[in-house]
Nucleic acid binder design. Structure first.
Lengths: 243, 243
DNA sequence: TGTACATCAGTGAACGCGCGTTCACTGATGTAC
DNA sequence: TGTACATCAGTGAACGCGCGTTCACTGATGTAC
């Protein structure tokens, strides 16, 4: 630690940040395929091999990017979760879902990076590229299901889900956070996720664009019907669950 | 037309078919990225440039493949449509949806080719790569919505969809086939599509695998709830729509 | 039936491209005495 | 304050790779008389 107070380390951190930032910009304009060491270096005015001073390999860089992007998504939906009143499950679901779609529309290439085809030749590290952010998003969705569960439970009388159906995945993580959510509630969480993911990914990949000019209206309608099908009034929510 | 009865043309057709077949095999084992002229030629024991005798360019070949794969999907769901009794909308929806998922699971790379990121550098022709098959699948989904509409209509009282929301897309194609389906019914069709696409694409891209070991059960549950939310009994259907 | 010509599928070599990665190096920045 | 040394970010050239595409060609297959 010299008199300049770790100047080298600061420069190093700045360059690392710039590499990540340039990579994200390239991805935003050219898709995940555009993330190449050479393109990043070209954009930064340096040589490609200089990047090896900051990332051991291209896949390392991509893993870092996925983490960063996924964390941004998690931040966005977590903020929406906090924004909606805890006592109003319909509002929670709709706010969260709109934040999810909003983030995806604002970061379509990020959405592709997380949920679509990986970058050609990319090999994710074991445990997944972004286990932390994935856990946060999963927990968020489980929270939506937990909020809706008191209302929706009545429709799940003949559901035959067991905890064993979720072995190894969400199970161990979600049970402590939402102890009152039964297996059928976890299934509900996955169903909600499917509804959101379906419309959003159709829209991101351009399949909705050829069908309707009002994807926003369609999404709002979907949410209204989703909430209704969970036994929650879409207008005013019911302050007390039935029975 | 010589004495051998167009032998050259037959050979030509056979080689063309073999190229397509080998390309599909490569895609099935290595993903859409694996479709390269050189890889196909290698597999066939010929040189890469020989393929130019059959396809003007790589994108031409990819377009042909997308058409073929999409047509196979359309065949699968059309067959399911014909298999279910026309008088039972719940069965129609569930049979169709299971065929959709079944085809996707049997042809995951095909699903990616149609609905996911395009092959790197691929430029689709204007009008889309497979307008015909896309139209058939769209019509199928519209048919599901039309079958459910008499039951579901009651939930769409305050829906504000207009025909103008669907300008340029499904609109012109679907109206003649299902004259009784209003704009809100088309919105329902897109919502149904979203439900199916969401769970199936999560599964195909491996995001469901880390959550549940019973995606099949989850999909069946989703269908049961979908059908219920449309006002159709999931056990026995109602032979007459309400009111 | 036999010969001269046209067709055309496929070859082999080459082009230019961008990629990830390695290697020996230079030269500025920081550190120790 | 000045000098000798260590650190280390970045360079420049090169590697081998696979890709789409072009070009002049060969040689077998079919056709016309």
């Amino acid at each position: 630690m010299g008199g300049t107070g770790g100047r080298r380390e600061r420069l190093r951190a700045e360059t690392t940040a710039e590499i990540r930032q340039v990579a994200l910009k390239l991805m935003a304009s050219g898709g995940p395929d555009a993330i190449t060491l050479r393109a990043i270096a070209r954009e930064m005015g340096m040589t490609a091999n200089a990047i090896y001073g900051y990332f051991a390999t291209r896949d390392d860089l991509v893993t870092t990017l996925i983490n960063e992007v996924y964390a941004a998504l998690a931040d966005a939906v977590d903020a929406a979760w906090a924004d909606a009143p805890a006592t109003d499950p319909a509002s929670r679901i709709q706010t969260w879902a709109r934040a999810f779609r909003g983030w995806a529309l604002a970061n379509p290439e990020g959405f592709r990076l997380i949920y679509g085809d990986p970058v050609p030749g990319y090999q994710a590290p074991e445990g997944g590229a972004a286990p932390n952010a994935a856990y946060r998003v999963c927990t968020g969705i489980a929270g939506l299901a937990a909020a809706a569960w008191p209302y929706a439970e009545q429709f799940y009388a003949d559901s035959d889900f067991q905890w064993s159906d979720f072995d190894g995945g969400l199970l161990g993580k979600v049970r402590p956070a939402y102890p009152d959510l039964p297996p059928a509630g976890v299934a509900l969480a996955l169903r909600i996720w499917g509804h959101l993911h379906g419309l959003v990914s159709l829209e991101i990949y351009g399949h909705l664009r050829t069908q309707t000019i009002s994807p926003d209206k369609l999404f709002r309608e979907e949410l209204a019907h989703l909430v209704r099908s969970l036994g929650i009034d879409s207008e005013g929510y019911r302050p007390e669950p039935p029975r």
